[in-house]
């Protein structure tokens, strides 16, 4: 079964980061921006043209493209 990623969430939805499935520059950058395992994320909105997306994470706002959101595996609660 394909794991759920940040990209699969719609605006307003919350989830917890399970793991980052990529290494190298992008994987590191994601962890350094706070997408560490266990951290709560919320999709705020998509850009008017549909990409990138804005994520709220620990009170701050991060923008990332869908291809990068795909590297963040998440678990939804409840």
């Amino acid at each position: 079964m394909k794991k759920m990623t940040l990209k699969d969430l719609s605006p307003g939805q919350k989830a917890r980061v399970a793991r980052i499935n990529r290494t190298g520059a992008i994987g590191r950058r994601l962890v350094e921006m706070g997408f560490g395992p266990g951290c709560e994320v919320k999709v705020e909105r998509y850009a008017p043209l549909g990409d990138p997306m804005e994520i709220k994470l620990k009170g701050t706002h991060i923008s990332l493209r869908k291809i990068e959101a795909e590297m963040v595996e998440v678990e939804q609660e409840g």
């Binding site: 520059a25 950058r29 921006m33 804005e54 706002h61 991060i62 990332l64 990068e68």
Partner: peptide, 10 residues
Amino acid sequence: GQSEPFVMEL
């Protein structure tokens, strides 16, 4: 090669 990540803070 891969394009640069767009992961940035607003």
